[in-house]
């Protein structure tokens, strides 16, 4: 077996909805989109609601606080890994959003993370902001009381 390193550059075209999400990140804020039929707020929005099959035209500014719905602690090394192990990979549900996305949790020992824990985004320095989720360094606990399980059960 011979390993031969290769290199591939590609241009990513995010489309209208994801462009708004990514531009929001470059300004240090979260922008989602609401479905006109079910009223659910998607982030990142792909531009349409997969349930109703209609465009999600309305932008919704979301706060950068939310909860951890569920999580795992990654302790496995692999090629191209961007974060030192062990790290906490959580599903973060922002306040006002109806779908979670994966976020890094820091500022708490891995053994203390909980489902329902309140967290807030920690952003990179203003001059480092860009159209990428790398603008969010991580989420960290706010210290508020945990959300009761019943309030986020439907997002699991």
């Amino acid at each position: 077996m011979l390993d031969t390193p290769i290199h591939l550059e590609y241009t990513f075209t995010p489309g209208i909805a994801q462009s708004r999400f990514l531009r929001g990140l470059a300004e240090g804020r979260f922008v989602g989109q609401r479905c006109p039929v079910c009223g659910k707020v998607y982030i990142p929005s792909r531009g349409s609601c997969p349930v109703d099959g209609v465009p999600t035209g309305e932008d919704v500014a979301l706060s950068d606080t939310g909860i951890v719905t569920t999580y795992c602690v990654v302790n496995v090394p692999f090629a191209g890994q961007a974060i030192e192990i062990p790290y906490i990979a959580a599903q973060v549900l922002l306040d006002g959003a109806n779908i979670s996305f994966m976020g890094l949790i820091q500022g708490i020992p891995a053994t203390d993370v909980r489902m329902g824990m309140r967290v807030q985004a920690v952003w990179v320095e203003p001059d480092e902001l860009g159209p990428t989720l790398a603008s969010v360094k991580y989420f960290t606990p706010t210290g508020e009381p945990d959300a009761p399980y019943e309030t986020f059960e439907e997002y699991l």
């Binding site: 990513f12 995010p14 994801q18 999400f21 990514l22 990142p44 719905t69 569920t70 999580y71 795992c72 990654v74 496995v76 692999f78 191209g80 890994q81 961007a82 974060i83 790290y87 990979a89 959580a90 599903q91 996305f101 994966m102 976020g103 890094l104 489902m115 159209p131 990428t132 989720l133 790398a134 969010v136 399980y149 059960e153 699991l156």
Partner: peptide, 26 residues
Amino acid sequence: PQPFAAPLLAGAGGYFAPHIRAYMRR
């Protein structure tokens, strides 16, 4: 890594483990 997601995903196990935790809780 992709621009619209944090570079956290660690293979299939990293994807499914949170859902396993949700099952255990549920």
